[in-house]
Structures are given as C-alpha cells and as structure tokens.
Simulated assay, not measured.
Amino acid sequence: MSHTQSPPLFPQLERFVERTGLLANAKGILSARLPRILGQGQTRAEGLDMPPATIERQQELLALSLPDEASRDPGVQSEIADARRAVDAHTDHMRHPENRRRFAMQVLHRLEGVSTGSKDNHFFAGRLVLVPDKGGQNWAWSMTPHYPVIAKIPADIDYVVSAYAASERIVEKWTMPVDRFLGRLSLAWTMAHHFGEGDNVFIADVARFFKVAAQDERFWGSPSRRNFEDVPEAVFIANLINWRRHRDASGQRESFELVPATLNQAHGPKSRAFFVPSNPEGTVVRPMIYIRKQSS
C-alpha cells in the first residue's frame, strides 16, 4: 500500500513554500512540522514505517503558525479552511462510541488469518488488543489494554491495519526463549531490588529495568547510548505471558511468584499495579503488585 503516489494534499501551500523558500530557511518548530505537513518523514506512530497520514498532516497544518505573508495568500488560506473543516468533522465523528466501534470492526475485518473479535468491551486480534484513546483520535495495538506495542496510530483504517502486522513483528522479535527470559528477568529483578526499598519488589519496577536487561550482547559488550535499543513496554508482558503459558504447559517449577494487588493498591492515581492477562485474548486483566524471587 502506498500513500506517496496520491496527488498533493496542499498544492497551494506547496507552491507558496517553493516560491518563498520557506522550507529552506525554516527554523525551530517550523522546520520540524513543515516537512510533515508536506507529506515527508513518518507518521507519529513509532514502529510504523509509513508517511504521515492525511489527518495527521491536516492537524499539523492547523497547529502551525505560518508567516504573515501566508495569511495574504487566498489559496493557502482556502486549504487551511478546508483542513479545519475536515479535522472538525473527523473529531466529531470519532467522538461517538458507535463510530469508534464501527471503525474497529472495519479494521478487524481487514485482518486475514488471525482470530479477531470483541470481548469484555475490547477489540482483539490474535494476542493483541486494539485500544482507542478517549476521543478515538489515536489508536494502539497493545498487550492487554494497558501496554501498547505501537501507539499514536492515526484514526485511518489503512494505518491501523498496517500497524497490526508491524506490532506482531515487534512482539516476535522481542519474545525470548523461556530460559533466556528467566535469566533477563532475574537480572531486572536484582536491579529493581537493589534500587528499591525493602524486600517487596514492584513488578512495575522490574518491567522498567527489563528494558535494560533485555538488551542484546552488542550493548553488554559496549554499554553506550548508540548500542541501546528501545524496548517497547509491552515486551515485558509479552515475555511474561509466554513464560507463564510455557510454565503451565510443562509443569515447570516457578522461580518467581506474582503477588496480587489489594483493591487499594490496584486503584488510585498513585497505583503501582501491573496488569497481567487472565484470558488468552488479553481482554481481562488481574492487577498484580509485587514479584517475589523463589529460592530453588
């Protein structure tokens, strides 16, 4: 699927930019936003290798302060007005829960060879859950509704469909053999215990340190920022699910125990609970609070 062959979205703006040399002399926020408005660079959704979606470009245009000369260009002003109408209509449309549900079902219908559906007020495809933000402007493919693999996906069906395959590739890439995961989990737990307070180690802290523990040999051979690969938050829960499934199937003795959160620990603005799936689709979660290392 290619979005690069479509006709220019803002031909009048492009002519204005070319005529005034605006892009060549752009600084600060203008130099960052203008290329995206013109369809260059990538969508805001990290991990998705696609150009900015039409709706993203329209939103960026409305958020940009153009030079005074642009306000005197009727063609540019007409395109800004059109973009405002399109963004307002899109925002109003996605605000309604039924339209968000219809959008999600259209995405699921486009996915082939994977089990999809709606369960527990969530939409799922395989092991991933499709989650909109409150206004339906941005979507995410997540491990459970809490841990996104790819987030900030624009409300464009093509983009959400493409992001599913990209999310699956990310999960596949980072899912480790169980023995290796347990070794990295032990390292993350030791770091969390060292920097924590007392013997109760928060799962949330272990998940944070797991981003370091999960690095490959290149990083450990030469620890530096350039050798550090960003690990999505969902990677920890993906491996945790894989380990628990493997443990249940093989009867493997646990080396770690997850401690359920109390009602008070699970809710509230300062909650440190970590939400572990309790069904195969990941649409139902159970709040856990601590992770205890068991002696072998």
Results as ranks from 00 to 15, higher is better:
residue 195 F to N: 07
residue 208 R to G: 07
residue 211 K to W: 02
residue 205 D to K: 12
residue 219 F to D: 00
residue 221 G to L: 09
residue 209 F to T: 06
residue 199 D to S: 13
residue 188 A to H: 04
residue 233 E to A: 10
residue 227 N to R: 07
residue 220 W to Q: 09
residue 204 A to G: 05
residue 214 A to C: 10
residue 221 G to A: 07
residue 219 F to P: 00
residue 197 E to F: 14
residue 192 A to W: 01
residue 204 A to W: 08
residue 187 L to F: 11
residue 196 G to N: 10
residue 194 H to Y: 15
residue 234 A to M: 14
residue 187 L to P: 00
residue 243 W to F: 08
residue 207 A to H: 04
residue 207 A to G: 04
residue 198 G to R: 10
residue 234 A to L: 12
residue 242 N to T: 13
residue 220 W to H: 01
residue 189 W to Q: 00
residue 187 L to Y: 03
residue 212 V to P: 00
residue 213 A to P: 11
residue 210 F to P: 06
residue 225 R to K: 15
residue 240 L to G: 07
residue 203 I to R: 07
residue 193 H to T: 02
residue 217 E to F: 13
residue 202 F to I: 02
residue 213 A to L: 07
residue 223 P to H: 01
residue 242 N to W: 01
residue 230 D to E: 12
residue 224 S to A: 09
residue 242 N to K: 10
residue 235 V to P: 11
residue 187 L to D: 11
residue 231 V to F: 01
residue 201 V to M: 01
residue 230 D to I: 09
residue 198 G to K: 06
residue 240 L to W: 08
residue 192 A to I: 05
residue 202 F to A: 14
residue 222 S to M: 08
residue 191 M to A: 10
residue 214 A to K: 04
residue 192 A to K: 02
residue 241 I to H: 02
residue 190 T to I: 07
residue 196 G to W: 08
residue 199 D to L: 13
residue 215 Q to W: 05
residue 199 D to K: 04
residue 233 E to P: 04
residue 192 A to P: 05
residue 224 S to K: 10
residue 225 R to A: 13
residue 213 A to Q: 02
residue 220 W to F: 15
residue 221 G to S: 13
residue 226 R to L: 07
residue 208 R to P: 01
residue 228 F to W: 12
residue 235 V to N: 11
residue 233 E to C: 03
residue 208 R to F: 14
residue 240 L to V: 07
residue 189 W to N: 05
residue 215 Q to C: 05
residue 242 N to A: 15
residue 217 E to G: 05
residue 193 H to I: 02
residue 225 R to V: 03
residue 193 H to W: 14
residue 230 D to H: 14
residue 232 P to H: 01
residue 218 R to V: 06
residue 228 F to N: 02
residue 208 R to N: 04
residue 213 A to M: 07
residue 202 F to Q: 02
residue 212 V to L: 13
residue 228 F to Y: 15
residue 207 A to W: 03
residue 216 D to T: 14
residue 203 I to G: 05
residue 232 P to R: 03
residue 211 K to F: 04
residue 193 H to R: 15
residue 202 F to Y: 12
residue 223 P to V: 02
residue 241 I to D: 03
residue 205 D to T: 14
residue 200 N to T: 07
residue 197 E to W: 04
residue 227 N to K: 05
residue 213 A to R: 03
residue 214 A to T: 03
residue 231 V to P: 02
residue 224 S to P: 04
residue 188 A to E: 07
residue 197 E to P: 01
residue 200 N to C: 06
residue 187 L to R: 11
residue 238 A to R: 03
residue 240 L to Q: 14
residue 194 H to E: 06
residue 215 Q to M: 08
residue 220 W to C: 08
residue 199 D to Q: 12
residue 200 N to A: 13
residue 211 K to P: 08
residue 241 I to T: 12
residue 209 F to H: 13
residue 217 E to I: 10
residue 218 R to S: 10
residue 230 D to W: 14
residue 237 I to M: 13
residue 215 Q to P: 11
residue 192 A to G: 04
residue 216 D to I: 00
residue 226 R to F: 10
residue 236 F to Y: 09
residue 211 K to G: 05
residue 189 W to G: 05
residue 231 V to E: 06
residue 194 H to V: 06
residue 208 R to K: 15
residue 232 P to N: 02
residue 187 L to C: 08
residue 193 H to F: 14
residue 208 R to D: 06
residue 198 G to F: 06
residue 219 F to S: 01
residue 212 V to K: 00
residue 202 F to K: 11
residue 212 V to M: 12
residue 234 A to V: 06
residue 224 S to R: 13
residue 229 E to D: 09
residue 191 M to S: 00
residue 213 A to E: 04
residue 213 A to K: 01
residue 215 Q to A: 00
residue 221 G to I: 00
